[in-house]
Amino acid sequence: MIRRRNPGLLRQARLAGPMPWVIAIMIAITVMAAAAGLALSNLADNARAEIEGGLTVQIVEAAPAERDRQAEVALALLTNREEVAEARRVSDAELAALLEPWLGAQPVAEEDAIPIPAMIDVRLRGPATPRQLADLRTALAADAPAARIDAQAGWLTPVFDAIASLQWLAAGLVVLLAATSAAAVWLAARSALGTNRETIEIVHLLGGTDAQIARIFQRSVGIDAAVGGLAGLALGLAATVLLGRQFAQLGSGMVTGGGLGPSDWALLAAIPLGGVVLATLTARATVLSSLRRIL
């Protein structure tokens, strides 16, 4: 005989009350925290890939002719080195454009202009190591004594540290929220158990197994969690999309690197699924441990 599943021993053993709402809010906040964490992670990855092989060489020399000479020497020297993928002199026009917001428009060649260092943008074949930096410094010291070399990653380290801290914060929030959700579900399952104690005892005395009784509650808690979870997901995603748009409007190059990819969205959509699993397992554990106390 094929064992067909019954429609349920107790059709309407629902968990009334605030359960779905609590879960919806939890899931919404979890989705937002996770989205923030993922966006920060993407942003850090993109930024790091872009700059970790980048060096900036400045020729800090007041006399324009000498500055130009040393810049050409340094450029030639750098271009010939094996570890350098690309070296490019930042043109005076570009520099002027970069500095305009701070210094105002000024004629580049005029003698009384504020001296601006010449800049060479260097891209290495791999990430810049302190060792390579030291080598390059030595190589440049003789012919271009005014050259100063900085790794771009170096002065961005505090930014990366801050992003990493934020990522940890987001991860911590997600963990805390999961724990709080579990506690909320646990409390809800316990109170449902209390109000249904009579029913549970009856089914138990009629020969219902622990698994059968747990299933009744698992199912209703699971449904509540699914309803709440979907509502929370919708809320969380809406907030994430809105925030994302606002950041995009800032137009900053860094923020565009912080967008969410398809796999990120899939991960966010899976959060309510995790919520349902968590709720179901918690309800099961609660019912089983309470049943074990009666014979």
């Binding site: 021993l9 009629l206 219902g208």
Partner: peptide
């Protein structure tokens, strides 16, 4: 068992209360 206080499941109909032992035993609907 006929309990002294009956112990019927309050939110189930008379039919579903009587059917409960069969459903617990996994008898097909």
């Amino acid at each position: 068992v006929v309990f002294q206080d009956f112990r019927l499941v309050p939110h189930l109909s008379a039919f579903d209360n009587v059917a409960l032992p069969l459903r617990v035993s996994g008898v097909p609907e």
